[in-house]
Design a protein around this nucleic acid. Structure first.
Length: 774
RNA sequence: GCCCGGGUGGCGAAAUCGGCAGACGCAAAGGACUUAAAAUCCUUUUCGCCGCAAGGCGAGUGCGGGUUCAAGUCCCGCCCCGGGCACCA
């Protein structure tokens, strides 16, 4: 058994799990088979109940029992703890992570390269782009990441960029709009063209990416990113080279939004591929090496940034697009670039064409003449997965001086973490310092070789844990594809918005890779996604680095798990952010106490009581069943479900003295059943107090009786000119004329109607009367 | 700048299809029980004005317009708050 550090659950998790757990319990009671994995912020619903199948009670699988959860997860090979960086400790899970890695390596989907990477000094490791938030580490929100050049393993998520984007169209119905929008944004597709500009007096070509090839006749400069490989060749003076270096350093230090546009003329020119003219070549700090080709054509008349840059450096501004029904404008008098689409002018044979048509035709022309082609560029970059940590799956690669990077053969998997490693928390990978681990013969040629010392990003674990969960003890494959075909895609996934472009994009990618390995048939992991709101503390999300984390254990200690869960469900509807404010926790605690006392007092009640009391109480009971059921079936606003249970209880306290034995019995049982999804421990106790054996979840959800739920009389508001003046109590279905007569007879209505003419009477049957008078 | 949310009492919120604004809970005030406290149970509680009182009148869902018999809800124009993306060519 491997050692592992301990981490803590916070209230955001509690809320997440309380929501999913309530749903799962409800579904169980409705007779569905539910597979309900509680992993990294996640549930699968509705599916088969693995817990019951395994002979365990669902309650064992709930958040309420954190210790049990951890043990459960450990047996499953998932998170032993809640901190992502220590998520996998199980050798079997290592094995399959490594197995996947090797499969990807063999297919060219995993590769190693040196690159500038995001380095978090606090974590002592590099991070993927998705894990950098506002220039800081996602776990250390106040620690800016640094750029370090390092050798790192990448997974080719960009191979799937187009599919990940297009498939979002199908997810739109089941996923929140904002998550879809964030992913679209993150993948960042741009359709355009790549065009080569020939370097004058040289065979070199400079390739640029543009979405506006229709403006290419307005290109008056080429601008290279300071890191562009040609820069070293074009810029030769020491002073100039220093300037380039300064540009790179300044860009790394500063917030890119506020960076002043600076540039340097190389003294060299390129040939315009369309008209053959001379174009000066510049280096500009605002051109990004990591996007497109790292070089752009500057079209100052039709791009805001190019406009600013060229105006500052006296580069000519040549408009070539005119607005539909507008003038072409003139370079010297231009105050603003025209960045809209319009009609191409002054562009040779393409003059007069609308923008879209010109883009198509000009790209085709470039293609036909061998100096470019239509091209699509994505903003998303490959997923850097190497981490300089101890905790995580070792990357199963051996570096041989003869053979290069060789994957560990399948029969030798898993590569396990060596025990007793000194973890400094800073600097290089801890595994490097363990010679027994590092030094191995090459699996191919037997030469003395060294292992890769980095471990995998733990987001890899969370990318497919829900698949493994369906078949956790399989030791010949990651899972049985037949089983997956039965369960997947997940019907309902629940998690935090914080993973919109982290976990939720990685797991989509992983699913598509597994599909291409013929392991799964589904294209997407989850049909429906529900993102619960964040639990805030003083306006910002709880995080360890801010020290504003509420420890659920303390609250569980003080009030119990049920109160704790109930509070997170009651404070706000699940999709909304909630500010943590402990003051109203008392109310939930009192509520549970009131329920408990009512049920235990009335469980064995006898006698006939007063019929009126029983009728009223039963009516409210059935109205409440209707309300809670509909909340579950439609919108999951558990705050209103719980409120209606409180209303029921208030009514029960009113009617308690006159209840008959049989009414009391029915009420106690159904109230307990309705409480079960929200407060499982309390409900289970009461269920046993009512004389039942076994888990309350094996009992079916109560049905409401529409007859019993019906009010005897309708209480219909009476308005005069839209203002409420009184109520009419009458039988349901009273006709309009009768309602009008009753309304006009009201003392409170008369003064507003007498002496006036009734122009119109609006009647909404059983709902409202509005008398319009003049 | 672009894309999402949101703005309702002292507070968290409810009003699900245009039909009684403020359910439910917190906090507060009063009362019952108690030697006392806790716990529990019962009242009151949007604001303003009138009234000894029962009660009555008026205003009110960020602001300004509009549609409608009727608007927190729909339409137009703003303001403010939160989140995401952003020299992406």
């Amino acid at each position: 058994m491997l050692p592992y550090p301990s981490g803590k659950l916070h209230m955001g998790h509690v809320r997440n799990y309380a929501i999913g757990d309530a749903l799962a319990r409800y579904m169980w009671m409705r007779g569905y088979n539910v597979l309900h994995p509680m992993g990294w912020d996640a549930f699968g619903l509705p599916a088969e109940n693995a817990a019951l199948k395994a002979g365990r009670e669902p309650r064992e699988w709930t958040l309420s029992n954190i210790a049990h959860m951890k043990a459960q997860m450990q047996r499953l090979g998932f998170a032993i703890d809640w901190n992502r960086e220590i998520a996998t400790c199980d050798p079997e899970y290592y094995r399959w992570n490594q197995w996947f890695f090797v499969k990807m390596f063999e297919r060219g989907l995993a590769y190693r390269k040196e690159a500038l990477l995001n380095w978090c000094p606090e974590c002592g490791t590099v991070l993927a782009n998705e894990q950098v938030v506002n220039g800081c580490c996602w776990r250390h929100e106040t620690t800016p990441v640094e750029q370090r050049a390092m050798q790192q393993w990448f997974l080719k998520i960009t191979n799937y960029a187009g599919e990940l984007l297009d498939a979002l169209n199908d997810l739109e119905t089941g996923w929140p709009e904002r998550v879809v929008a964030m992913q679209r944004n993150w993948i960042g597709r741009s359709d355009g063209a790549e065009v080569d500009f020939r370097l004058e007096n040289s065979n070199e070509k400079i390739r640029v990416f543009t979405t506006r090839i229709d403006t290419i006749y307005g290109a008056t400069a080429l601008i290279l990113a300071p890191e562009h490989p040609l820069v070293a060749q074009l810029v030769t003076g020491d002073e100039e080279r220093l300037k380039i270096k300064e540009m790179i350093d300044a860009a790394a230090r500063q917030d890119p939004g506020n960076l002043e546009k600076v540039g340097l003329f190389t003294g060299r020119y390129a040939t315009h591929p369309f008209h053959g003219g001379k174009i000066p070549i510049w280096v500009g700090n605002f051109v990004l090496i990591g996007y497109g080709t790292g070089a752009i054509m500057a079209v100052p008349a039709h791009d805001q940034r190019d406009f600013e840059f060229c105006r500052a450096h006296d580069i000519p501004i040549v408009p070539v697009i005119r607005p539909v029904d507008g003038d072409l404008g003139h370079g010297e008098t231009m105050k603003e670039p025209f960045v809209e689409y319009g009609v191409v002018e002054a562009s040779g044979q393409w003059s007069g064409l609308p923008s879209a048509e010109a883009r198509r035709k000009m790209a085709a022309f470039a293609d036909a003449n061998g100096f470019g082609e239509a091209s699509t560029t994505y903003r998303i970059k490959d997923w850097g997965i190497s981490r300089q940590r101890y905790w995580g799956t070792p990357i199963p690669i051996i570096y041989c001086p003869q053979c290069g990077a060789v994957p560990v053969p399948e029969k030798n998997l898993p590569v396990l973490l060596p025990p007793n490693v000194k973890i400094t928390g800073k600097g290089r990978s801890p595994l490097e310092s363990v010679p027994d681990f590092m030094n191995v013969p090459c699996p191919r040629c037997g030469t003395a070789a060294k292992r890769e010392s980095d471990t995998m990003d733990t987001f890899i674990d969370s990318s497919w844990y829900f698949y493994r969960y369906c078949d956790p003890h399989n030791d010949s494959a990651p899972f049985d594809s037949q089983i997956i075909a039965h369960w997947f895609p997940i019907d309902q996934y629940i998690g935090g918005i914080t993973h919109a472009i982290l976990h939720l994009i990685y797991s989509r990618f992983w699913t598509k890779v597994m599909r291409d390995l013929n392991l799964v048939a589904n294209n997407e992991p989850a049909k429906n996604l529900f993102t619960q709101g964040m639990v805030l503390m003083g306006g910002s999300a709880m995080s360890k680095s801010k020290g504003n984390v509420v420890d659920p254990d303390e609250m569980v200690e003080k009030y119990g798990a049920d109160t704790c869960r109930l509070y997170t469900l009651f404070a706000a509807p699940p999709e909304k952010d909630m500010d943590w404010n402990e003051s109203s926790v008392e109310g939930q605690h009192r509520f549970l106490g009131r329920v408990y006392r009512f049920v235990t007092r009335n469980a064995d009640r006898a006698g006939d009581g007063q019929p009126d009391s029983s009728r009223k109480a039963l009516r409210k009971l059935h109205q409440t069943i209707r309300k809670v059921t509909s909340d579950f079936d439609s919108r999951w606003h558990f705050n209103t479900s719980i409120a209606s249970l409180m209303e029921l209880l208030n009514e029960l306290y009113q009617q308690e003295p006159g209840l008959s034995g049989s009414a009391a019995r029915e009420i106690c049982e159904k109230l307990t059943l309705m409480l079960a999804p929200f407060a499982p421990y309390c409900a289970q106790d009461l269920w046993e107090a009512l004389g039942h054996a076994g888990p309350v979840f094996r009992h079916s959800w109560p049905e409401f009786d529409p007859e019993l739920a019906k009010e005897e009389l309708a209480e219909i508001p009476v308005q005069v000119n839209g203002k409420l003046r009184g109520h009419v109590r009458t039988v349901f279905g009273t006709p309009k004329d009768e309602l009008q007569r009753l309304a006009l007879a009201l003392d409170k209505v008369k003064p507003f109607v007498d002496g006036k003419q009734i122009a119109k009477v609006i009647v909404v049957p059983d709902k409202l009367i509005n008398l319009v008078v003049k």
